[in-house]
Each structure stands twice: as C-alpha cells, then as structure tokens.
C-alpha cells in the first residue's frame, strides 16, 4: 500500500480530465460529477493520450479517436469498446485525492496483440 496524493478535489473540474505526475508516474484523473477515477494516461485501444482525446459526460469517458467508451461509475465497457480501462484505487481525504500506487498501471499492448499461439488457443 502506498497512498500518494494526486491533487486537490477542486483541481479537476466536473466532466473533465486532467493529467498529473505522481512521483514520476503519469496519472489521469477524471471527475465525472459523482466521483473521481484515476487511470493510466492513454487509451487502451491505440495509445491515444486521453488528456487530449478524453471526453467526460454523463458519467462516461469517451476517447474521441475511435469512440471507445467506459462507464466511470461501473468501470464497464460501453458499445463497441473492446478493452477495459485499468483503474487506480482512489480515496478522498481532507479535500485531496489520493491513489493507491502499488505499481504503475500499464496496458500490455504487446501481449494482448501478441499473436502467439496461446492467443488463438
């Protein structure tokens, strides 16, 4: 367990995303109105930077590149989205947002795209 402070709860406007450096790890914070989610800074589809391409509305994060979308309340995938987001555990305390930084969350583009025999098993 390594709870790290990311930002103040007022630092990310409702229905927006903002990129933070948490001791060398890029963390994207989304404020979807009824809460916050902290995720890796890129889209799991084609590595699009979500601080630029991420749109938050109606508790949904949509990447404007190919319209992959995730429900920020349930963390589930919506529509034609094919890969889930990874989420850091978050906590709000004394007006600040903390993430549980056990290790940097990364999308394993190589192994998921890795077309080895197991993939077709």
């Amino acid at each position: 367990m390594a709870w790290k402070k990311v930002c103040g709860v007022g630092d990310v406007e409702v229905n927006s995303v903002k990129l933070f450096d948490v001791e060398g790890v890029n963390v994207l914070v989304t404020n979807y109105g009824s809460g916050f989610r902290a995720i890796p800074p890129i889209c799991p589809h084609m590595e699009e930077p979500l601080d630029v391409s991420g749109i938050v509305a109606n508790c949904v994060l949509t990447c404007s590149k190919h319209l992959w979308a995730w429900d920020l309340r349930t963390e589930g995938m919506l529509g034609e989205t094919e890969k889930p987001l990874k989420f850091y555990e978050t906590r709000e305390e004394d007006g600040a947002l903390f993430v549980n930084m056990v290790e940097e969350l990364v999308y394993d583009f190589d192994s998921e795209d890795d077309l080895d025999d197991d993939f077709f098993g």
């Binding site: 229905n15 749109i55 509305a57 109606n58 949509t62 404007s64 319209l67 992959w68 979308a69 919506l78 529509g79 034609e80």
Partner: peptide, 13 residues
C-alpha cells in the same frame, strides 16, 4: 464530437 457527446448527450452509436 465534444459538443455532440457533452451537450447533446449522444452515445457513440
């Protein structure tokens, strides 16, 4: 896209 999703609440579909 931002206007349609944010203001219009349109889904990707």
């Amino acid at each position: 896209l931002r206007v349609l999703i944010t203001d219009g609440q349109l889904s990707p579909q």
